[in-house]
Design a protein around this nucleic acid. Structure first.
Length: 560
RNA sequence: UGGGGAUUGGUCUAGUGGUAGGACAACAGACUCUGGAUCUGUAAGCCGAGGUUCGAAUCCUCGAUCCCCAGCCA
């Protein structure tokens, strides 16, 4: 294959799951494939879910199949409606079409119950009176076999009666369970008579108080797939050794055989993907809610300013394999920058201002300077930016003693004010501590628009905001949430948060046009990065911008 | 002598017996009214040891390392 297009590699290779599906389709095993995206509604959707959703929805759409959204709500003690709505909102925002309705495992509680009865009648399930601790002891360990429960050989009639009483709420929580009768000596712990129903007398968000018993995930998931005629059930590798159990249920119950295929979950550097940890961050107020812009949640990323197309692009680029992986955050940021570079409106704002006075500029003159809204997209036209005698520039853009290769403002040297004039620094004012507090310059009146009349080259161009004809905003700068390079998710309690994950800058000068900024629009603050209005904390009189991602900065790198 | 999975540059990934390729990151340069974008180039890899073969990342054998499983979580 001649690689003329650099993306050929991405477009033309089939991952192992697509290979399996292509083969199945070729052999005529299915008329149509059906996949499913099965989140548990016990937290907000994060980028790992997005990857999984992307895999399932694109597998379906590529093959003219369909993909069901199904909430795995078999444990009412952990699940909430708030999370369901959040998932639906995020899914829609990402552009995944799950049809007009969502499915729920709880819709199958009746069916699941009759499956349990069927197993009991087949002599393949029994009510066990062992305590939780005893069940654990009887189960054995990773290296030693388990032993049979003393209740394993109860008569079918007795099991039926006991299970019925469990259902009717005659027993206390945890006093009895229903177990599948498989093999206590199996090397696979999932096959050592797994619990399939437990007593839980609590309210379920959809079935209310109807049930006193709830199926375990293992007894619900595979059968739910089967009931929906899911052809390919894609899940993560930690469920690999549950597959024999699901296949046992399919076999004994004689139901539709969905095929489970496992792939490795996505991990991202600089953050955690564990639902437990994310939830802990929220509950302990270490972050400001699930949609905190530092969170790897979809709502957090949306608020941070990550476009949905960039997130989808990222999901596509990370591909599907079974290897353990930690994808570098820089890949996600690359996708975000690539997308925003084409679409973001350019404006000027100053994060750390220092005043510049242009001595030879008329005192009361205010000129309207033409500035391009997007050099990458000329159809975005241009706007007027007011220019006057006093302006703010970035403190970093001036140096009294310039380091080597410093293209910016320094005493006696020229620099260009973007779209405006060429200025030369003639003097500085210092405070009593010797710090520069004001810069005095002269401008070249013949350089309006930024071009010198005599053709002399000016290497540096810096951004600026007119001191009076401007507005201010609070600007929030984010960094990775987790500072440790090596994250041991098992040692979840010792993960260190990055103390600099958020930095708040107040009263930043912003160009006047931004006082009418829209929440829908992505902006590039020239030379600084991409920003978006914070959707929660912005008030009419108090604008708050989130930095989505910085621009690549080869100067900053050079210095450090 | 528990079971299951995995191992290709720093990171992610392609490869299916015939020149190890791509992306991100890094580095160097060109260009530039954003030290942005764009373009060009550089460095960097098959877990190890044997074997089969004209030829092995790929097949075989043995070994190493890492991950998952002992919830009435999912």
């Amino acid at each position: 294959m001649n690689n003329t297009n650099k993306d050929d590699n991405l477009e033309n290779t089939e991952d192992f799951i697509r290979e399996i599906i292509s083969k199945d389709l070729l052999e005529g095993k299915y008329n149509q494939i059906i996949t499913r995206f099965p989140p548990e509604p016990n937290g907000y959707m994060h980028i790992g879910h997005a990857k999984s959703a992307f895999v399932n929805f694109s597998l379906a759409s590529e093959n003219n199949g369909k993909c069901n959204l199904r909430f795995d709500d078999t444990n009412p003690s952990k699940e909430e409606e708030e999370f369901i709505h959040a998932f639906e909102k995020d899914l829609k925002w990402l552009g995944f079409d799950y049809g007009h309705k969502a499915y729920y495992s709880s819709d199958y509680f009746n069916q699941l119950y009759s499956y349990a009865i069927k197993l009991i009648k087949l002599g393949l399930a029994y009510v066990c009176d062992l305590s939780q601790d005893e069940i654990r002891e009887y189960r054995g360990t990773l290296t030693s076999k388990g032993k049979n429960s003393p209740f394993r050989d109860r008569a079918v009639e007795e099991n039926l009666d006991l299970f019925d009483q469990m259902k009717k709420g005659r027993f206390e929580n945890g006093s009895r369970v229903l177990r599948a009768k498989i093999d206590m000596s199996s090397g696979n712990l999932n096959l050592r008579d797994p619990v399939i129903y437990r007593i839980m007398k609590i309210k379920h968000h959809r079935t209310d108080y109807k049930w006193c018993i709830y199926p375990t995930y293992d007894f619900a998931h595979g059968q739910s797939d089967s009931l929906e005629k899911i052809t390919h059930s894609i899940c993560t590798v930690e469920f690999e050794d549950h597959r024999p159990l699901y296949n046992w249920f399919i076999d004994k119950l004689d139901i539709y055989p969905s095929k489970q295929i496992e792939f490795a979950r996505l991990n991202l550097s600089g953050t955690v993907m564990s639902k437990r940890k994310l939830s802990e961050l929220v509950v302990s107020n270490k972050v400001n809610g699930w949609d905190d812009p530092r969170m790897p949640t979809i709502s957090g990323m949306r608020r941070r300013g990550y476009p949905s197309e960039a997130i989808l692009d990222f999901c596509k680029r990370t591909s599907i394999t079974k290897r353990k992986n930690v994808v570098d955050l820089s890949l996600l940021e690359h996708c975000v920058r690539e997308n925003l570079n084409k679409s973001a409106y350019r404006v000027m704002a100053v994060l750390n201002p220092i005043k510049v006075v242009i001595k030879n500029y008329p005192d009361d003159l205010v000129e309207e300077i033409d500035a391009l809204n997007n050099p990458e997209d000329l159809s975005a036209h241009s706007r007027k930016v007011p220019f006057s005698k006093e302006i703010y520039i970035e403190r970093d853009d001036f140096a009294e003693i310039p380091p080597p290769k410093f293209y910016r403002l320094t005493i006696g040297k020229e620099v260009r004010l973007r779209y405006a004039y060429i200025i030369k620094c003639v003097d500085v004012i210092k405070n009593e501590r010797g710090e520069v507090i004001e810069i005095h310059c002269e401008y070249d009146p013949n350089s309006r628009g930024g071009k010198s009349a005599d053709g002399r080259k000016v290497k540096g161009t810096i951004h600026w905001v007119s001191a009076l004809q401007s507005s201010t905003a609070e600007i929030r700068i984010y960094d990775k949430l987790i500072s440790e390079e090596v994250i041991d998710e098992n040692d979840i309690d010792n993960i260190q948060l990055n103390p600099n994950s958020i930095k708040v800058l107040k009263n930043c000068p912003i160009e006047i046009s931004l006082s009418k900024a829209s929440e829908e629009v992505h902006y590039q603050f020239e030379r600084l990065g991409y920003f978006i209005l914070d959707s929660k904390d912005t008030k009419l009189e108090h604008l708050v911008f989130n930095r989505t991602v910085s621009l690549r900065d080869s100067w900053n790198k050079q210095k450090t």
